[in-house]
């Protein structure tokens, strides 16, 4: 147990280091004039933004979204692994990862729509391919988490695994939708000037480490809950 705890602490410390670095970089950008983000007033033209300061939202919105995709990828891999090995631990991993992923994708959606409001005046545009795609993702994985109804039996695990596999298949499908839906779904995405790349990288690393820390903690709680179930069963057995 000591080794597991030190892993958790290690992840927490590492993620906090990077988070601190990210915060420092963010603050640095805050004090600098937004030279690479030329201001040209609404409507946004390619190459300049009507809300250049709000652009910095992307410096933590992108890591949030990326971590969400990572977590859903883990759900997919764990679902496949469960179907092949029937080891319930894969199912536990999938569930934990999905739960954290839902939190991250919700935050990504919220921060993204705040940026949208700053840039375009509206919180949401259904025509935007990427917003649409992320909303799809959010819906699907909320459904995945909702499938968990109390005790986890083999049947439910099998169901969730299949759903987890199909759910991940919607990720590339939604991503591609912005190209298929031609005129309808115009997506406004920023291009990131080179000077933001280090900050983005730091952000991605920070959030990934933080995600791993959360996952680790969540799995430990799951292990505890297993123990609880085991104790209850032995109590009922001996009673």
């Amino acid at each position: 147990m000591g080794r597991r705890e030190s892993l958790g602490t290690g992840l927490l410390v590492a993620s906090m280091v990077f988070m601190f670095l990210l915060a420092a970089l963010l603050a640095f950008y805050l004090s600098e004039p937004a030279s690479s983000f030329p201001d040209c007033g609404p409507p946004p033209l390619p190459g300049c933004w009507s809300a250049p300061d709000a652009f910095r939202i992307f410096l933590f919105h992108v890591p949030l979204a990326w971590t969400a995709y990572l977590s859903f990828g883990i759900v997919f891999v764990a679902s496949v692994a469960y179907l092949r090995t029937r080891d319930l631990r894969w199912d536990t991993l999938a569930m934990a990862s999905a739960e954290i992923g839902v939190v991250f994708v919700t935050l990504a959606l919220l921060t993204g729509s705040i940026w949208n409001r700053a840039e375009l005046g509206v919180y949401w545009r259904w025509e935007d391919g990427r917003l649409f795609a992320t909303f799809v993702l959010w819906t699907v994985y909320i459904a995945y988490v909702a499938l968990h109804t109390g005790t986890r039996d083999v049947q439910e695990a099998r169901l969730s695994a299949v759903f987890g596999i199909f759910a991940f298949a919607t990720v590339p499908v939604s991503y591609l939708s912005q190209f298929f839906f031609s005129s309808l779904h115009i997506s406004i995405r920023p291009t990131f000037p080179a000077e933001t790349w280090p900050t983005l990288a730091v952000g991605v690393v920070a959030f990934t480490l933080f995600f791993l820390y959360l996952l680790h903690w969540r799995l430990r709680i799951d292990a505890l809950e297993f123990r609880l179930v085991g104790i209850k069963e032995t109590m009922e057995g001996s009673a």
């Binding site: 809300a51 250049p52 300061d53 709000a54 910095r56 939202i57 933590f60 919105h61 949030l64 954290i100 939190v103 919700t106 935050l107 919220l110 921060t111 705040i114 940026w115 409001r117 700053a118 933080f210 959360l214 903690w217 969540r218 709680i221």
Partner: peptide, 25 residues
């Protein structure tokens, strides 16, 4: 610069969300 409001709002949302999940755990 009124845009900063949005930046602070987004930061608050992200922090509250992450911290909230920590509290839940």
């Amino acid at each position: 610069m009124s845009d900063m409001v949005y930046l602070y709002a987004a930061l608050t949302v992200a922090l509250v969300g992450l911290f909230g999940y920590l509290v839940y755990l």
